[in-house]
């Protein structure tokens, strides 16, 4: 009996709603619309995060299970599914990396790292340097916290730069209506780089935490 399993390549379904025999039927309107439509905001990478948050709250005020505590059993179950999907939509759009990945998936472009392991050599070099910098920072006895702080700012800057580039590509594509393949390929790379930078940020945080 195998005791373990292996992670499969993530599938590209925009929604990962738990399987219920007729989930798709009962959540028709939700599934027919993308996350941007759900919140009634423009389908664009640059978004008004305050508006997104406000709309998210409006939706949860209506669909959160607390509103259905004395409703019928199916309505309680449905509200949990709706609320879960609204949470997922919000989490996805609120996070720059996930938002990029989601928008590309709507255009039929996968950002799977496991399908394609090629990375820009220059970016990889930079990653190695950043990592070395982190190790050096950690081992600098009395100024470790400051060194890690400076490194965090650097990584954040790299992150913001890519966010801006992704916005330029995706939002222009949306405006002109014609997807430019090379542009989208660049966007795909940038989104994957955001993933690496995300990981870096959380490692710096861990290193900071370890100092206490």
């Amino acid at each position: 009996m195998p005791a373990v399993v292996e992670k499969a390549l993530p599938s590209e379904a925009p929604f990962s709603v738990a399987s219920s025999c007729n989930t798709n039927l009962i959540m028709q309107t939700l599934l027919e619309n993308n996350f941007f439509d759900l919140f009634g905001i423009e389908n664009a990478y640059s978004l008004d995060r305050q508006l997104l948050r406000d709309r998210f709250r409006d939706l949860q005020k209506k669909f959160h299970p607390d509103n259905f505590a004395s409703a019928s059993e199916q309505e309680r179950r449905l509200s949990a599914q709706y609320a879960a999907l609204i949470n997922e939509a919000f989490t996805t759009l609120n996070d720059p990396m996930q938002r990029g990945r989601y928008m590309l998936s709507l255009l039929g472009i996968s950002t799977d790292e496991e399908l394609d392991t090629r990375m820009d050599p220059e970016f990889l070099m930079q990653q190695i340097e950043l990592r070395e910098e982190m190790e050096a920072a950690q081992s600098s006895a009395d100024s470790a916290l400051d060194a890690l702080g400076r490194l965090a700012i650097k990584v954040n800057n790299e992150f913001s730069k890519r966010e801006a580039s992704i916005a330029e590509i995706l939002d222009n594509t949306a405006e002109s209506g014609s997807a430019q393949e090379s542009g989208l390929d660049t966007a795909r790379h940038l989104v994957r780089e955001l993933q690496f930078l995300n990981r870096m940020q959380s490692e710096i945080n861990d290193a900071e935490e370890a100092l206490f």
């Binding site: 292996e6 993530p10 399987s19």
Partner: peptide, 16 residues
């Protein structure tokens, strides 16, 4: 720190 209720699915493959 995922907001609840939350639903996530992931695919796994057989290995033998």
């Amino acid at each position: 720190n995922a907001t609840i209720p939350v639903t996530r699915a992931q695919e796994f493959t057989t290995y033998k």
